[in-house]
């Protein structure tokens, strides 16, 4: 079997993710039924030509709900990733640049947040703030930024000793500009890898939160919520559970896999650059 090249698989993964995103954005146009409309006479129908994935315990069309189901988690995971990346870059950048107390205190902060058990803290935060999109966002950002900061810090520590940084240091008066312009410019490949991986993980976390009931709330059509709803009738109508589960798997797998493939691609590029 021919080995698929890194670049080809990156394009493929991006295409799959793009399709999922497009489907969710245009869900109202694509979905055959209203995802929240109940039909008590048609509860737990098995797949048929009318309802491709059947209906759930309240007679709602599973296909329509699956098509809508990524909206919340994609949207929130995107913003939570962006937010934790921004905080992580800022704090990790400062910690990596300075060798003094700034680094020490920020490292303590990072360790503190990284030692928190992610899911439990998320549950606690959502529990205190009440379940809403904002509290999920806050919970995920709170537990997500420290990992980013750690990676950024170690990268900055390496890059700041490069000659072009030391050279720019001799004519640039602003350390901030030097750090967040020159140093960061060398970090883009790493950040791309991180963003994809983080977003995959965030999606899983949101689904998990929704499943245990503190994430997105019913009747919102969300993959995690759907699994929770469907588990009661899993013997009669397994498709109501399988369909959203498969979607979560595809979305999260593609995102994390994209991160890994981007990393492979970056590493290969670095090697060729070093051999030049």
């Amino acid at each position: 079997m021919k080995k698929i090249s890194t670049k080809a698989s990156i394009y493929f993964l991006i295409a799959v993710i793009a399709i999922i995103i497009v489907i969710n954005i245009f869900a109202p146009l694509i979905a055959p039924y209203d995802p929240t409309a109940t039909q008590m006479t048609l509860r737990n129908e098995l797949p048929s030509s009318v309802h491709w994935f059947g209906t759930d315990g309240l007679g709602r069309d599973v296909l329509s709900r699956v098509i809508y189901g990524g909206r919340g988690s994609l949207f929130i995971s995107f913003f939570a990733t962006c937010l934790s990346m921004l905080i992580g870059i800022f704090i990790g950048g400062l910690a990596g640049w300075y060798d003094n107390w700034v680094d020490h205190s920020l490292q303590v902060l990072m360790s503190l947040f990284q030692s928190l058990p992610g899911l439990s803290i998320s549950i606690a935060v959502v529990g205190v703030l009440g379940p809403s999109n904002y509290s999920i966002l806050i919970a995920l950002t709170l537990t997500g930024w420290s990992g980013v900061a750690r990676i950024v810090r170690s990268q900055v520590r390496e890059i700041k000793h490069k000659q072009y940084i030391e050279s720019a240091r001799t004519y640039l008066p602003s350390v901030f500009y030097l750090l967040f312009h020159h140093v960061l410019s060398a970090l883009w490949p790493t950040l791309a890898v991180l963003t994809a991986q983080r977003m995959g993980r965030m999606m899983l976390s949101i689904s998990a939160l929704s499943f245990i009931g503190v994430g997105l709330q019913p009747p919102t059509p969300d993959w995690g919520v759907m699994i929770q709803d469907a588990k009661t009738y899993v013997i009669q109508q397994p498709w109501a559970l399988i369909a959203p589960a498969v979607m979560i798997c595809i979305a999260a797998f593609c995102l994390t896999r994209l991160g890994e493939r981007l990393r492979d691609y970056r590493d290969a590029q670095m090697r060729t650059m070093e051999n030049m």
Binding site: K162, Q163, Y164, S167, R169, T170, Y171, P173, V175, A186
Partner: peptide, 24 residues
């Protein structure tokens, strides 16, 4: 010192190929 560096005391590093940032 940040104000003096570049305006009053200039520095030209060695190894120009690696002392110039290649993304700008």
């Amino acid at each position: 010192m940040d104000r003096i560096r570049g305006t009053e005391i200039g520095w030209v590093a060695q190894n120009p190929q690696s002392a110039l940032n290649s993304v700008f």
